[in-house]
Design a binder for these strands. Structure first.
Length: 292
DNA sequence: CCGGACTCCTGGTTGC
DNA sequence: TGCAACCAGGAGTCCG
């Protein structure tokens, strides 16, 4: 699951190569990767060829590259998406779903390969609209409902705490709710909860303010650390635009560590099914606190 | 508002 | 050795 750090690594890697580049050709190998585009592949190709990319932007796990005329190419990696930057003549991966040929004024001809095994990811051309909170900021309509991520300077901590207190749900569910806080997925949710000693099903409304602050701080810490290390690569699926993997898997404390000793107390980490996915935590360090 | 179930999907792994 | 069942889960939708 590429989460904020992996997606940001992709955005940052894309930036120098695509900004100012002209789209010279587009090939759609699998139309299913255009699910969010809402029109056939020919429409996608026709509207993209001849356009010039501006600097790629990101919110949460969404990347978009403005192409002028109030439009942008929106990219979501889903579960298994990769965006690879390659020389024009490089070999094409079998799982490449979309290929975009570009010409950069300084770097020359390049190719962007959208590779996606599970096809939960997508590309789409979308209209840019004013952001709800800061009208000067433009976001694709598909991203309008996505909250700012905790690394965004405009992320509003007080607003987040207030919303959290009003929610009547478990804290992990809230962390994964992209309309409340974006960019966090299953891995970093488990890691941040472990670091702040909070149980995944702790009711949000019962979280004390100091605990909520600790949790948000740990979310930022774990995202920042992963970012510095180039993103997680625990199953080698997550690559930067150059096809290189990150190193964060070496420092996971809870995610995927079931049966291993908790790095804090030594008792075994447990994996439970929650929200149709695995939740990894230390049953000793992370207990539901404060009955009601 | 909330949560659960379901959908999209395929390749690596597991199990017989 | 071969094959089938199983598992991974981001995000949207629908329903009770």
């Amino acid at each position: 699951m590429p989460e904020l750090p992996e997606v940001e690594v992709v955005r940052a890697g894309l930036a120098p190569a695509v900004t100012g580049a002209l789209v010279t050709g587009v090939t759609v190998f699998d139309e299913r990767s255009l699910r969010r585009h809402g029109a056939p592949g020919a429409d996608f190709v026709g509207r993209l060829v001849g356009r010039t990319f501006a600097a790629p932007e990101r919110r949460g796990k969404f990347i978009w590259i403005p192409i002028g005329d109030g439009e942008a190419v929106v990219v979501h990696l889903g579960m298994s998406g990769q965006v690879l930057l390659r020389p024009l003549g490089a070999e094409i991966d079998r799982l490449t779903r979309i290929r975009i040929d570009i010409h950069h004024p300084e770097l020359g001809a390049l190719r962007i390969d959208f590779v996606d095994q599970r096809i939960f990811g997508s590309m789409a051309i979308d209209e840019l609209v004013a952001a709800v909170d800061v009208p000067g900021d433009l976001v694709p309509t598909q991203v309008e409902h996505i909250a700012r991520d905790p690394m965004d300077p405009r992320f509003d901590d007080a607003l987040f705490f207030a919303k959290l207190a009003k929610r009547n749900t478990g804290v992990k569910r809230a962390l994964l709710d992209q309309t409340l806080i974006s960019g966090v997925g299953n891995i970093y949710a488990d890691e941040a909860l472990w670091a702040s000693r909070v149980h995944y099903d702790q009711p949000t409304a019962s979280l004390s303010r100091p605990r909520a602050k600790t949790l948000l701080a740990e979310v930022r810490l774990v995202l920042g650390k992963a970012l510095a290390e180039g993103g997680t690569s625990f199953d080698a699926q997550y690559l930067n635009v150059n096809g290189e993997s990150g190193y964060f898997s070496h420092s996971l404390n809870a995610y995927g560590q079931q049966g291993e000793p908790c790095p804090r107390c030594g008792r075994p980490i447990v994996r439970e099914q929650f929200m149709n996915r695995g939740s990894h935590f230390c049953p000793y360090c992370q207990r539901v606190r404060g009955a009601r």
